[in-house]
Design a protein around this nucleic acid. Structure first.
Lengths: 142, 142
DNA sequence: ATGGTTGCAAACACTTTGCACATGA
DNA sequence: TCATGTGCAAAGTGTTTGCAACCAT
């Protein structure tokens, strides 16, 4: 299992012309296991837990190159800092609770139709979009 | 004309329990006239042009209180800094050109239906949402 | 071997805060 | 008058950069 996962990660990096260093493989692994987008501090402490000593500059550089290559997505939840998640082709979005900070995924984004409409009406070619919902989760509505 | 505008601004501030200082009135005026969301530097230089000497701290404080009271909206375009625009009830969004940086408005946001669906399915109460499109504007598609 | 990558320190950019002074209501 | 707002300086965060040492290929 682990073998397969590591092998895949190495290939993923090779495919985008990035060297498969321990730090990068570990970051990739961490992001793949996480069910919410993580910020640099999160990633830093998770790397530490794995016994991998590194620093913020490296993680920022890693995330920037991953994101440039399309391997990850940068998410902005109005926290004054970026979060990152693996790019998947499910085009999901997030429900962010303004009370407890929980982040829930929502899939089946129905923006595609809208995008086509915009492209035609506005002659604007859409590459990506960001869509996040802020409010109160089930537990915080009392 | 100008009289009316100023009068309205003063009332707007009074309604939300903020003192109508020259700086605040000027900021309000600037935002009302702008057709794109502005960041703090933008606002600062526009205030300067009006002959109004102030500083970043004051503008940040102003924008924070405006936004808290719902008079303005904070917009995030993944620039590492916030922009601000007047809250209107038209629920519009933006098309941001990744090449030239132009920002175009798009109105008629069809998210309402989706929001209702989410509220029911996920039992999540949505207060606001952010939706921005990134891509290439008409002029940058060659 | 060598070009990409890291770690460290320093620099940067955006935003917030403390405090004395000024001002709108 | 007096709570609120302002200007200035300093501090706090998040992020980037320069450079020598290091390592994957």
């Amino acid at each position: 299992m682990q073998m397969i996962s590591i092998h895949n990660c190495k290939d993923e990096l090779k495919n985008i012309n990035l060297k498969a260093t321990p730090a990068r493989l570990a970051v990739l692994n961490i992001l793949e296991k996480s069910d919410t987008p993580l910020d640099i501090s999160h990633i830093f402490s998770l790397l530490n837990k794995k016994g991998l000593k590194t620093d913020f500059a490296t993680i920022f550089r890693t995330m920037n190159s991953f994101t440039e290559k399309g391997l990850t997505k940068q998410i902005n939840l109005n926290e004054g800092k970026a979060r990152y998640e693996i790019s998947r082709n499910d085009n999901h979005h997030h429900l962010i609770c303004q009370n407890c900070g929980s982040i829930e995924d929502i899939s089946d984004c129905p923006i595609d139709a809208l995008e086509k409409e915009i492209q035609e009406k506005k002659k604007f070619i859409i590459k990506t979009h960001s869509l996040e919902f802020f409010g109160l989760c089930k537990n915080c509505q009392s």
